[in-house]
Design a protein around this nucleic acid. Structure first.
Lengths: 120, 120
DNA sequence: AACAAGTATAGAGTATAGTCTATACCAGGA
DNA sequence: TCCTGGTATAGACTATACTCTATACTTGTT
């Protein structure tokens, strides 16, 4: 597919996709058979990759961290156990972020209590 | 206290504290009685404010959002119920961030399952 | 053939949140 | 009195993650 379709199917703008490509997060390939242009082809697997990027960003990972894990995941030949290890580490990081948020939540509920006490 | 002490007691660098002050998040006051210098005094209440900033940042709020809520909280005369309302809204936002992280977590545990299936 | 719309590339511009530097003044101890 | 280190202010610089613009070529439609 061309960049336009990738953009539409992922909801990520063409500009941002090109930025991701220049950043090394995704890569299209120019069809050698076609001589008239240098339009890049993006294959189906990129949909999953872009979705992964979106999810990882939501989890608070930087593009650089995402690039590193995608590199580990897709480009290097990793053993199944190694892959599981990587994902489990990410899950732990997410759990720690969740814990942090819960702490902030607690901080806020305590703020409410204080306000309520002022009332009395 | 002077900026140095505020920095040490909050763990936030002097540079960043000055940045926060220029941004309107905190404010020291120059002692009118002292003529020889214009050193700023930061009072005890700022410790709490800076801690609030740190927590809110952890929760993913931008400085602009933090400024707005601090403004609401400290500068305007708000009714108790209004204050509770503000905090409850923030708690909801945090809950939604937690939900988002849990979704990413699920995405990752599914990735593990996929890898394990490849193994068979 | 004309033209709108799509594509590629390079590079400039933006927003956020710092971080650092230069300059100048001030305070306290040896 | 001199020196070290703290303070204030302004402004430059940085990193991250886009976002936009300019330029030029290509494709499909009329």
């Amino acid at each position: 597919m061309l960049i336009n379709e990738l953009s539409k199917r992922t909801g990520v703008s063409i500009h941002t996709l090109r930025y991701y490509e220049s950043y090394g997060l995704i890569a299209g390939r120019t069809d050698e058979a076609v001589k008239s242009n240098n339009y890049k082809q993006y294959d189906e697997s990129l949909i999953g990759k872009v979705e992964w990027i979106i999810q990882a960003k939501k989890a608070g990972f930087t593009l650089s961290e995402i690039r590193k894990s995608m590199d580990d995941w897709y480009n290097k030949r990793l053993s199944v156990s190694k892959k599981i290890e990587i994902v489990e580490k990410k899950i732990e990081e997410i759990d720690s972020k969740i814990r942090e948020l819960k702490q902030v939540r607690k901080f806020l509920t305590e703020a409410i209590k204080e306000v309520e006490n002022d009332m009395c």
